[in-house]
Design a protein around this nucleic acid. Structure first.
Lengths: 331, 331
DNA sequence: CCGGCGGATGTAATCGGTTGCAAGAGGATT
DNA sequence: AATCCTCTTGCAACCGATTACATCCGCCGG
C-alpha cells in the first residue's frame, strides 16, 4: 500500500541497492555497472518514481529557473521576446519565470532578484532602480538597459535605426519631418530621438518637431490630435513614431478625420509588430528581430551562469520594412 | 569574514537563540516574545540574511510556483490573460512559470505537469492530450478546455457570444452572413460556429457560409481572398470572424482591393484586442474580459491548491462592442 | 603468497530551513 | 505548598535528494 509518491529510498529497497546507487543511475549512469543499472531502472519503472526537483536543487544550490522582468506582460512586443527566451531556456533545463515589473507592488520586484529564487535574470525594463539588483546574480539586459549598469546587453542600434527611418522619409522628398518620442528619460527614447536629429542635420534639414509619447496606442492617438490641430500648411508631411503601437494610434486618429495616409502624411513606425503589416495602409517600419533578441539574451545568460564573465554587448541588425504608409510628398 | 551567504544558523548564533526561534520569527512572528523577536530581527539585519526558498519549499513539500500552459506566448491575447494571472499569484506568494506548448518539444510539456515542479497548473490550451496530465495536480482550465477532462473551467459563453454578434449583424439587415471559423476541432471553434448557426436559424436566415481559419492574421487574410473571389452578387454582406486577428487580416485584404468596410461588407471580430479599436474603421467585436479571466483562473487555482474540490465552471460575461466596421446593408 | 590498484557500491554528512515534542519559567488555582 | 496552565524556547528529526569518503572485491605483478 503505497499512498505516498515514491522516493529514492523506495526504489533502492526494491532494487536491493543503496540510495546512492539509485542517485548515480539518475545523474551519472555510466559509473554504475550494467546489471545494477538495469535493476534500478526496472525498480524505477515499477514504482513509478519521479525525481523531486526541489530536493535536487537544494543540494545543488541552484534553482533551475530564470526570471524575466518585463515592463508590461500584456504588450505583444515583449511576449514575442519571451517566446524567444523560452525556446532557448527549455532545452537547457531551465524554467522561465516571468514577472511584470509594473503590475507587482514595487519592492516585490526584488523578490525575484534573489539567488534562492532564480539562477539568473533577464531584464527587459530599463527603468528599474539599479541599486536593487544584486550584482552577484548572473544578469543580461535586453532591448532596454540601465545606464551605467554593468551587465551584457542584447540590443539593436537604435540611433542607427532611427536614421534609417528618417533617411527613407527624406529620400521621398519630405523636409518637415516630425518625431513622436517614447516615454521621457527612457534610453530608447533618447537614442531614437538623437538618431532622428542626427539624420536630419546631416542632410541640412530643419530639426524635427517632437511630440510627446510613451510607446502606447493612446499616446499615438494624442499625437495625431496634435498634428491635426496644426494649420494644414504647418503640418509636417511625414511623421516617424518611436513605436508601432503609437503609429497605429496616430493613423487611426488622422484617418478618422479624413486625412489620407500616405497622401496627406507619411507615417513610419518602429518594431514591426505582426499586426501592422495587415493594416490599411500597411505600415512602413523598422523591424526588430524580437525572437532573435530573446534567444540571444537567453544564450548570453546561460553563458554567464556557466561562468563566462565577458560583458560585451550584442547588437542585432534591424531591417527597414517599406510598405504603404510612406510615399512621396503630395502637392 | 563572512564570504558565504548567511544561513539561519548564523542569525541564531548572533541573536543568541536557536535556529528554531529564528525560523519562527520568519514564518510565525506572533508566537515569539516581543523582546526575542526584536533581537532576531536585529540579527537578520546585521547579517543581511535572506531566506533560502528552496529549502523552505522542500520542507513544506511545495514549490511556490504555478505553471501556465499557453498555446502561443507571442499572441497578445494570451499575454493579457497572463497579466491577470500574475496579478493574483504574486500577492499570494506564487511564482508564475510560463510554458509555450507549441514551442517546446512535445514531451517536455509533461515536464511541468509534475508535482515537484509546480503546485498547480493553469491550462490555456484545449488541444493538449488529457492523458499526460496527472489528475493529482491542482488544475484549472481557462478559455479553451479539454472535452471530458474533469477540472474547473473559467470561460465565457462562446455560443451565446456568437449569437450576440450574429444578431447584431442581422439587426442591421444582413441576410447573407458568413463565418470564418477557428482551427478545426477546437472547442471554441465549435461553440462559436454553433452559436452562429443557431442565431441564424432562430431568425429564419440561411445557414452561414463558412470559411476555414485558425485564429491567425494570415488565415483571415486568406478568408478575405476567398471572399473576393466570389462574384460580387454572391458575396455575403457581413462576415463574423472567430478572432480579431483574423478580422484584421480580412479587412486588410479586402480594403487592399478597394472594398469599403462597412459599405461593401460588415465585419465583426471576436476578443477585442487592444489594437482593433484604433484601426480604420474601428472593429466591432465581442469583448472577452481577459484580465478578469486570468484573475479568476488564478483565484480558482489557489482555492484548489487550498483543498477546495468543487469543479464547477466560472462563466464570465462578454460585451458587444459596436464600432465602425459594421453598418446597415448598402445597396 | 601478499601488497596494490581500480571499479562498484554503501555509509553518512550535507544542502537550509521547519516543526513535533518536551522542558522550563512564571502565574493562577485549590 | 502542590498542581495545573500557559507561554517561550530548544532539541533533534525531517523534507528528498547528492556526494565525499570508506569499503569491499577481484585481479595483477612481484
Amino acid at each position: 500500500m503505497q499512498h505516498q509518491r515514491p522516493k529514492i529510498g523506495d526504489v533502492a529497497r526494491l532494487a536491493g541497492v543503496s540510495t546512492a546507487t539509485v542517485s548515480r543511475v539518475l545523474s551519472n549512469p555510466q559509473i554504475v555497472s550494467a546489471e545494477t543499472r538495469r535493476l534500478v531502472e526496472e525498480a524505477i519503472r515499477t514504482t513509478g518514481y519521479r525525481l523531486n526537483q526541489a530536493a535536487r536543487n537544494l543540494r545543488h544550490r541552484r534553482t533551475g529557473s530564470v526570471v524575466a522582468l518585463v515592463p508590461d506582460l500584456s504588450n505583444p512586443f515583449f511576449s514575442q521576446i519571451l517566446s524567444g527566451i523560452a525556446s532557448v531556456l527549455a532545452p537547457a533545463g531551465y524554467n522561465l519565470l516571468v514577472s511584470d515589473t509594473r503590475a507587482e507592488g514595487g519592492n516585490s520586484i526584488l523578490r525575484y532578484a534573489e539567488p534562492s529564487r532564480a539562477d539568473g535574470l533577464i531584464v527587459l525594463d530599463g527603468s528599474l532602480p539599479s541599486e536593487g539588483l544584486s550584482p552577484r546574480m548572473p544578469m543580461v539586459l535586453a532591448c532596454e538597459w540601465i545606464p551605467g549598469f554593468d551587465a551584457p546587453r542584447v540590443k539593436i542600434d537604435n540611433r542607427q535605426a532611427a536614421m534609417m527611418a528618417v533617411n527613407h522619409l527624406a529620400d521621398l522628398g519630405h523636409r518637415r519631418i516630425a518625431h513622436v518620442a517614447g516615454p521621457p528619460g527612457n534610453v530608447l527614447t533618447l537614442a531614437r530621438l538623437a538618431g532622428t536629429e542626427q539624420a536630419l542635420a546631416a542632410r541640412g534639414l530643419p530639426p524635427p518637431q517632437v511630440f510627446a509619447g510613451d510607446f502606447s496606442l493612446a499616446s499615438g492617438r494624442r499625437a495625431g490630435e496634435e498634428w491635426l490641430a496644426l494649420a494644414p500648411a504647418e503640418r509636417p508631411t511625414a511623421v516617424f513614431l518611436a513605436s508601432d503601437a503609437m503609429a497605429c494610434g496616430f493613423i487611426g486618429e488622422v484617418q478618422h478625420h479624413g486625412v489620407m495616409v500616405p497622401r496627406d502624411v507619411s507615417v513610419m513606425g518602429f518594431d514591426d509588430i505582426e499586426l501592422v503589416s495587415h493594416m490599411t495602409p500597411a505600415l512602413s517600419t523598422i523591424r526588430q528581430p524580437r525572437e532573435a533578441i530573446g534567444r540571444q539574451a537567453a544564450q548570453r545568460l546561460l553563458d554567464r551562469i556557466a561562468g563566462d564573465d565577458r560583458a560585451d554587448d550584442t547588437v542585432l541588425p534591424v531591417e527597414l520594412v517599406l510598405r504603404g504608409s510612406t510615399g512621396p510628398v503630395f502637392r
